[in-house]
Amino acid sequence: MSLIFTTMTRIFFILLLVASIFMLFRGHNNPGGGFIGGLFAALAFALLALSDSVDTARRALMVHPITLLGLGLLLALLSGLPGLFSDSSFLRHWWTSIGALHVGTATIFDVGVFLVVIGGVLSLVFRFYQEEPA
């Protein structure tokens, strides 16, 4: 890989991760959300895998993508449970205000989606990059 690409990747890796978090929380009231944020974050790791190696990207991710996917699914499922107890309606979200920040269980759901997307996309991308077609 060219020097320019590997150097720029380090900058873009950070930028994309920051942008992904921004997108995740922006999705609250504006266009954005867990899915797009997750794609941004997956893109960051995919870039790293492309410029350096899949192993580096795996190490940077720290957990196995499938584990991440499972955790995200679990988080999304858990976020629906509170509504079950209050209104006996699954995914009925609770809301609260911390200062100016309006958060609720829907945020947890979004974080879950975020993790599922990262895990799902990366498990495929890593496999794509690792396999040398015959």
Partner: peptide, 17 residues
């Protein structure tokens, strides 16, 4: 998107094996 990504992985695998 998910299905096409999966199917693409399948095609790659088919090409490999």
């Amino acid at each position: 998107f998910a299905l096409v990504a999966f199917a693409a992985a399948l095609v790659l695998k088919a090409y490999g094996t």
